[in-house]
Amino acid sequence: MTKPSVVKLQDVWVTYHETLALKGVDMEIEDGEFLGLIGPNGSGKTTLIRVILGLVKPDRGKVEVFGVPPDRLGAKHHLVGYVPQRSQGDWSFPVSVIDVVLMGRYGRIGLFKRPSAADRDVAMQALEDVQMQDLARRQLAELSGGQQQRVLIARALATEPKLLLLDEPAAGVDAYGEEKFYEMLKGLKEQQGLTIVVVTHDIAVVSAHVEKLACLNQTLFTHASPTEVITAGTLEKVYGCEVELLAHGRIPHRVVEEHK
């Protein structure tokens, strides 16, 4: 039996300011998948995420999230959790950690109403999930980079999603922190039955942790297990040159010979 698909893209084309960002992307993400979406800078990774979120409307093609177009999710909006790039946030904004995580509940609370005690409980639980419960009252401006990242994840978890999309989540986190970060994601995926998509250009680290890799450079090159992707020479096609991969977990070691 095949698992139901959470995201389904059919022949999706996007032009951004007269530049082609995505051309003819077909993609299906199954329920429970842990997917790494990789590609060089400017390959359309973030655009693809924004298409799935309904923030960008494709010029052509069909997008379905949980069986409906993303802008028609309605009451099912909360099924999609999104962790944007940390660098895009306004970290001097005068709010506390718990305030930000509670924002994850706002879409479910409805207009005019205030968060209830139950909403606060969910928000606190989300902070516990990312081991940030002790910093709930802390102001945003007082956090380190790694802590800011975990606040963003907690906010996404507070919506109680089934699909979690993370855009360059490990940027600015050191190698040790990265390792711990992916362990945490794996734990969350298992506990809460999430489907997770991690966008990154750090192939080596992500391929050691995810179950599937998708390589994007305007078009989708492949969507398979990390070992398959790397041994098939897909990376060279995507990046247009040999790619250096440091030995990392079960991924084979590669040395760059030719680099244009």
Binding site: L55, H78, Y82, P84, F93, V100, M103, Y106, L111
Partner: peptide, 22 residues
């Protein structure tokens, strides 16, 4: 006063507010 939490959310992070269905 009525839209206090919504105005706070869009002021802090408009994109995220959109994703949440606001």
């Amino acid at each position: 006063a009525l839209l206090f939490k919504e105005l706070l959310f869009v002021s802090f992070d408009e994109e995220m507010a959109a994703v949440s269905g606001l």
